[in-house]
Amino acid sequence: MLLVLGALMVAAAILLVAFATSTPEKEVGLSRSLAALQSMGDVPKELTGELDRPFSERVIAPLQGRALTIGRRFTGADSSERIYRKLELAGNPPGWTVDRVVSLKVIGGVAGLAAAFLFSFMLGLGLTGKVVFIALGGVAGYFGPNMFLYQKAYDRQNAMGRALPDAIDLLTISVESGLAFDAAVQQVARNTEGPLSEEFARVLKEMQIGQGRGAALRALADRTNLDDLRSFVSALVQADAFGIPIAQVLRVQSSEMRTKRRQKAEEKAQQVPVKMTVPLIFCILPTLFIAVMGPAALSIMDSFG
């Protein structure tokens, strides 16, 4: 019996040692997963480069490329020149190019059609109403980038028109104080802010890289729609061509700009009564009649009642 018990105890000890030193199946699976992850980490960068690229390069860029291909087929031959002109008037917003505008027009048209299609069902329109609503959504999405550029150009031209008289005054003072024209332009670009300051800085850079003064000023006039700025540039170019003193021309232009600014202010002031007529008739007078005649009307109704 002692011999049998000893054998059993030895066998049990051997089994316990075997269980203690063996690796569970879960740990084996975990070690295999870690090994697989480590092997994936050791994959060459050429194979994982496609997954490491940002979402904009993997999805948005190919989408814009396809939209650009479709947009070029539907636009005219001179569309690139017209869009470039709009970008120049808008001040070349960062990231906006001719190709991007064309692709955004196609993407906006498709998005407008899809959004209008969904909203037409939500509004419960009829068949004719759905067709008209979807068509309007597509047209609005297609011309959305053009409207954005038009608004940017409009705001920019207005800002330049308001800053032009002050800039010409500063340019006149700088030239009359003894500075050269290039140094005076630099003073205007440095001491003013806004789109006009940026345009004068661009003119200065173009003259510094070797472009003539007249060509740089003409390029400035071509990038704007302001008649006052164009006449100012034309006077400077003619003065430079005929040898007329710049200070005298600037003094005359400054006086004319101030006069035009005063006339525009007077014109807007005279338009105020006409513009106030519509809200006065449809908004103010009805409420005034209600406040004045309302109590009397209620009294009369009570008397007859």
Rank of each mutant, 00 (worst) to 15 (best):
I60A: 10
T97A: 05
D78R: 13
D99K: 04
P62V: 05
G108D: 07
L68Q: 14
T97N: 05
K45V: 11
R53S: 10
A77T: 14
Q64K: 15
V106N: 09
G65K: 14
V59G: 11
Q64H: 15
R73A: 09
V59D: 01
I107A: 06
Y84W: 06
K86T: 03
G65I: 06
I107E: 11
A90N: 07
R72H: 10
E50H: 04
P94N: 07
V106A: 07
N92P: 04
P94Q: 03
S79I: 14
R73L: 11
S80F: 00
V98A: 07
S103K: 05
R82W: 12
S103H: 06
F74W: 02
K86Y: 11
D78F: 10
G76V: 08
G109N: 03
I107Y: 00
V110N: 03
S79Q: 12
G95Q: 10
G91A: 07
G65Y: 10
E46I: 12
A115G: 00
R58I: 08
F55Q: 00
V106P: 08
E57C: 00
A67N: 05
A116K: 02
F74Y: 11
D52G: 07
P54L: 03
S79Y: 12
R100E: 11
Q64W: 09
G91C: 09
R72L: 05
V110H: 00
V102Q: 09
S80D: 15
V101S: 03
V106G: 01
N92H: 14
A61R: 15
R85F: 04
G95S: 09
G95W: 01
R66D: 12
L68H: 15
E57M: 01
D78K: 12
E46Q: 08
G108S: 09
V106Q: 00
V106T: 08
T75C: 15
T75D: 09
S56W: 04
T69D: 13
R73P: 01
L63P: 01
K105M: 15
P93I: 05
L104T: 04
E88M: 14
D78M: 05
P94W: 00
E88C: 12
D52Q: 13
V102M: 15
F74D: 07
A61Y: 03
K86A: 15
W96C: 02
A115I: 13
V59I: 15
S79M: 13
Y84Q: 10
R66M: 13
A61K: 13
P93N: 04
G71F: 07
R85S: 12
P62K: 03
G112P: 12
V110C: 05
T97P: 02
A114N: 01
L63G: 06
R100Q: 07
L47M: 13
S56C: 00
A90F: 06
A111S: 09
E57P: 02
L87C: 11
V101E: 02
F55G: 00
K45W: 10
E88T: 08
G65P: 03
P93D: 02
L104V: 07
T48G: 03
N92W: 14
A116R: 02
G95T: 00
K86G: 03
G108H: 14
T48R: 15
E50K: 09
L68S: 13
R82K: 15
V59N: 00
R85I: 02
N92Y: 14
A67Q: 05
